[in-house]
Amino acid sequence: MNGPLLKVQNLTKHYPLGSGLFKKTIPVIRAVEDVSFTVETGETFCIVGESGCGKSTIARLLMRLVEPTGGRVLIDGTDIAGLKKDALRAWRRRMQMVFQDPYSSLNPRLTAGQIITEPVENFECLGRRRHQALAADLLRKVGMSPEMMHRLPSELSGGQRQRLGIARALSLNPSLIIADEAVSALDVSVQAQILNLLLDLQQQMGIAFVFISHDLGVVEHIGHRVAVMYLGRIVELAPCEALFAKPIHPYTEALIAAAPVPDPTRLRLEAPVEGEVPSPVYPPSGCAFHPRCPLAVERCRIEVPPLVPMADGRVVACHVRAPATEISGNPALAGDRSILLAQ
């Protein structure tokens, strides 16, 4: 297969606040601003950030559960925005979603078997026997006993419910699964079981994941590449190992420093980043992080920093740490840049 499995170009989503029938300008929530990235076959692409950074909106845009204000989502080169009813249904087979809350995302009146075979029933009529065989097969894939197919969600534990959510997503053999905070509501011991399951499934079936999370430890563990978002924009996108070894954007740095580490002998030197995330309705001018940034200079207040490619294959949006002019002035790196942008 040529080209990336998923390609997101300049994706933007604004939510209007109120109807504004008699107002000239309606304030909008700038949930996602000009976001671009690609996901390769079999890759785990992570999106991290704090509440309100736009990561869940991206999940909804990728599934076309909401329509974008601007930009494109291409899967295998096909723009999903142009798809009409039947084509959209067919394409949805390739992309499935796993949700955060295993309690509210399962129909409480269906049995486990009915829940996980329902996506397939949408496309073809399964006989009783095939239905049972499929349910048993899917349950085994997510490490549950086939006898569980007659249980109701209320008779299952939180971890088992999340396994059902994953089995349901697997039922159509998708190439891409979007997992929005899929392990966040789980206890750590259960979280470990589910993360292992995701790693196993990726190895066996070559599924790509868009893994959305606020938990840096989890992202570092399972991600191949990671995008850090702040107030609707990607501020740094890098291979996972490089990002955690040496964060470049001051926000990435603050985020990593803020995560508690289970090691009581570690001395915490740096003071936590001050202030809170500003409103996405009236984001700060220039770089949205500048009011909290210890490195901010005059330029950060005025100009939105572009994503600038660095030598190690990452892109960073920061006037101070990744100044655009210097890189483009350097012929070696400028060459690099054109390669990355062409991707």
């Binding site: 011991s189 470990a192 292992n196 790693l199 399972i222 996972c240």
Partner: peptide
Amino acid sequence: LMRSVPDRRRGRQRRLPE
């Protein structure tokens, strides 16, 4: 409990002890 928390010192992309 301690081993099931992802930890960079034990390597990425590995199965976590359950």
